[in-house]
């Protein structure tokens, strides 16, 4: 899932300074799962904003997904009543809402962090960089592009000590984890593969799937 967390309140208040009537919109998917922008967080943020600015109007609404137009449309008959929309979605959601309502300022309440998983309650770690060419099958299910600080593809650098990454003692060296996983799975031969150069994806990305399109394919 996409992991995000709330911006500092002072920054949110700065961006809201010109506006008095706000629609605060939550997102029911990733942002709910990582407790950053679901119904609960919407209520909390609205409460905080109201308690700090008595003359402000903050109305709340949470839609299942802010990255899909069909759900954003549910806001359509409401937005006219507000000066700005404060979105508690990831960057995709904020931009999708902004795109749907071109005349309305749409502001981000969150900082989108990464694609990751919940390690334990309250702790998330990054595990995928969306590089477009997954090699997890050759690396024991551990991604060196994401989990090695240098995204090394051909083995570790010389900086790991005690099994930890040179960047931080509380991060394991991904390549040592890969080594153990491959050993366990009896796949150590993958370590001896020919050196690879990564083809880095070109951003911004765009995918077209002809089988799903409704218009005639060119």
């Amino acid at each position: 899932m996409i992991i995000a967390d709330q911006k500092p309140l002072s920054e949110i208040q700065d961006m809201l300074a010109p506006y008095r009537k706000i629609l605060l919109v939550g997102c029911g998917t990733c942002m709910t799962f990582c407790s950053a922008g679901g119904r609960e967080e919407v209520a909390t943020l609205a409460g905080t904003l109201l308690s700090e600015n008595k003359d402000m109007t903050v109305d709340k609404m949470t839609i299942p997904q802010q990255c899909a137009v069909k759900f954003i449309d549910r806001l359509a008959d409401k937005v006219g009543n507000y000066e700005a929309i404060l979105s508690m979605a990831c960057g995709n959601g904020v931009q999708a809402v902004a795109n749907r309502f071109p005349e309305k300022p749409v502001l981000p309440a969150l900082n989108t962090q990464f694609i990751g998983v919940e390690k334990e309650p309250g702790i998330w770690t990054e595990s995928c960089m969306a590089c477009g060419d997954c090699i997890l099958w050759r690396t024991g299910g551990i991604c060196p592009i994401t989990r090695c600080a240098k995204s090394l593809l051909n083995g570790p650098c010389g900086g790991a000590s005690g099994g930890k990454c040179e960047v931080s003692k509380d991060r394991p060296c991904a390549w040592q984890e890969i080594y153990h996983a491959l050993k366990r799975l009896n796949m150590l031969h993958y370590l001896k593969e020919k050196p690879r150069v990564k083809d880095w994806p070109i951003h911004p990305g765009r995918i077209v799937r002809e089988d799903l399109r409704e218009v005639e394919a060119a």
């Binding site: 990255c67 899909a68 137009v69 995709n92 999708a96 990464f114 590089c131 477009g132 911004p204 995918i207």
Partner: peptide
């Protein structure tokens, strides 16, 4: 799968990148 980016549906069958996290 190959995971490619954080994005939105532009139209059915077309997705494009919107957020770099």
């Amino acid at each position: 799968c190959n995971t490619t980016f954080l994005g939105v549906t532009e139209e059915l069958g077309v997705w494009s990148e919107r957020c770099a996290g």
